[in-house]
Design a protein around this nucleic acid. Structure first.
Length: 212
DNA sequence: TACCAGGAGAAAA
DNA sequence: TTTTCTCATGGT
């Protein structure tokens, strides 16, 4: 078993996922913040509230009443901290000259700048780079650690950057492959870990619908 | 009822 | 430097 083989297996089991579901790069950025520690169905409700109120713009999120923004994104949970995080991201975006300006920035500089925004950690940063800005970066999340340590392909204690380098080296410099792989990992984890409490070992079970 | 979800930052040890 | 706590709604 190898990282490349796992990708092949997941793709065969679940098919292409074609992430990220959104209508614009900015919507993807907002979704990346809102999806922190919650499920996508809750994020959809929050984004729909923003859309319904024509509030899915950097300017609206920056300048509308903070309590109003929080009320719109309430379904996604942690609405107070996420409001501040959205504002920090929008402030950075505007100060940087908007989407057209950041699109011209080289990936390492862009990544460093995003990581400097309060509320944007490594996973959210790479979600934005990969899915909003189409940069070839591999997204590492807790599912990746869980699944691949269970498969004995990683130790589990590696740093975020170490794991990212490992997957990027294994899969080549292919943005579309990185995009599919991360989505497939999330789909797989959700498919096989429905048991309560969540089963963290069912990658090995013959009953697992997406057994690797 | 209790657990958990497509994390991150601050505080405490 | 590493670990623990906090933020919070809503589905199962």
């Amino acid at each position: 078993m190898s990282i490349r083989r796992v990708y092949k297996s997941l793709l065969e089991n679940y098919g292409p996922q074609s992430w990220w579901p959104s209508d614009s790069p900015f919507e993807t950025m907002v979704g990346a913040i809102l999806t922190q520690n919650t499920t996508w169905t809750h994020v959809e409700k929050a984004i729909n509230n923003l859309k319904a109120n024509k509030a899915l713009t950097p300017e609206t999120i920056l300048y509308r009443d903070e309590a109003q923004i929080a009320a719109w994104i309430k379904p996604s949970g942690y609405y107070n901290v996420k409001t501040r995080r959205l504002r920090a991201l929008c402030a950075w975006l505007v100060e940087s000259g908007g989407e057209e300006a950041i699109a011209k920035m080289p990936t390492p500089a862009l990544r460093e700048a995003l990581l400097g925004v309060k509320g944007v950690g490594p996973e959210t940063c790479d979600d934005i780079l990969l899915y909003a800005l189409n940069r070839p970066v591999f997204v590492i999340d807790n599912y990746t650690r869980r699944i691949f340590s269970r498969l004995d392909l990683i130790d589990g204690g590696e740093s975020y950057d170490e794991l990212q380098a490992l997957f990027e080296q294994a899969m080549g410099d292919d943005r579309d492959v990185f995009s599919e792989y991360h989505a497939l990992i999330v789909i797989h984890a959700k498919e096989v870990c429905r048991k309560k409490p969540a089963c963290h070992a069912c990658c090995f079970a013959t009953s697992c619908p997406g057994r690797i």
